[in-house]
């Protein structure tokens, strides 16, 4: 129970930051907990890139993110697997936490929130030890991803942030400036 409360406390403070804005077909964001040096996605990549067995898969995943999604195709349906319905949120924004889908037998899961074909927020992930995201080693990362997603989507639905006209950049709803506030 203590862990849960600490987690809730941590979850109340994070920032959305650019993970990649150089790729022409998709802009990637990530989340970074207040006070942390690394973003959640960087933690995921750094951790598994140090594992000699999983390093080749991390390289495949990074190439898939940047080369396939970012440069060639955008964030189209074929590359994502829906994990579960997000919290029941009213329109206008009602999207779900998904997993970047690089095949059934791929040993890593990376969770994300796909806001459009041109805008994806990457979270953390883990090593796939079960077929369902809720189970195994990725369960905590999956839970966290849903918590981040809920808070971010609430900002959309509360008209605090929105996507810009190109559906690529997350901006302040009224000023259209990049949104840098703690969430």
């Amino acid at each position: 129970m203590l862990i849960y409360f600490v987690f809730v406390e941590i979850m109340s403070n994070f920032v959305l930051e650019i993970f990649d804005d150089e790729s022409p077909k998709c802009q990637f964001y990530t989340v970074r907990l207040d006070g942390d040096e690394l973003s959640e996605t960087d933690k995921f990549l750094d951790k598994f890139n140090r594992d000699e067995h999983l390093k080749p898969y991390v390289q495949q995943l990074v190439s898939f993110i940047f080369d396939t999604i970012g440069i060639r195709n955008g964030a189209i349906n074929d590359f994502f697997r829906e994990e579960r319905k997000a919290q029941a949120l009213p329109p206008p924004v009602n999207v779900k936490v998904e997993e970047i889908d690089f095949g059934l037998d791929f040993p890593l899961r990376l969770y994300c929130l796909r806001l459009s074909d041109s805008c994806v927020i990457l979270f953390n992930g883990g090593e796939k030890t079960s077929q369902r995201a809720e189970d195994g080693k990725t369960s905590m990362a999956f839970y966290e991803a849903n918590q981040y997603a809920e808070k971010i989507l609430n900002l959309f639905n509360s008209k605090i942030i929105r996507l810009n006209s190109e559906q690529r950049e997350i901006v302040d709803f009224y000023t259209s400036e990049p949104y840098n506030e703690l969430i």
Binding site: L38, D42, L45, Q59, Q60, S63, F66
Partner: peptide, 20 residues
């Protein structure tokens, strides 16, 4: 772009990127 991700991409063999 994330420095960690870019470093991983830079170290990724060309054959891996072609495979992907």
């Amino acid at each position: 772009r994330s420095k960690i991700a870019q470093k991983i991409l830079d170290e990724t063999p060309l054959e891996t990127r072609i495979f992907v």
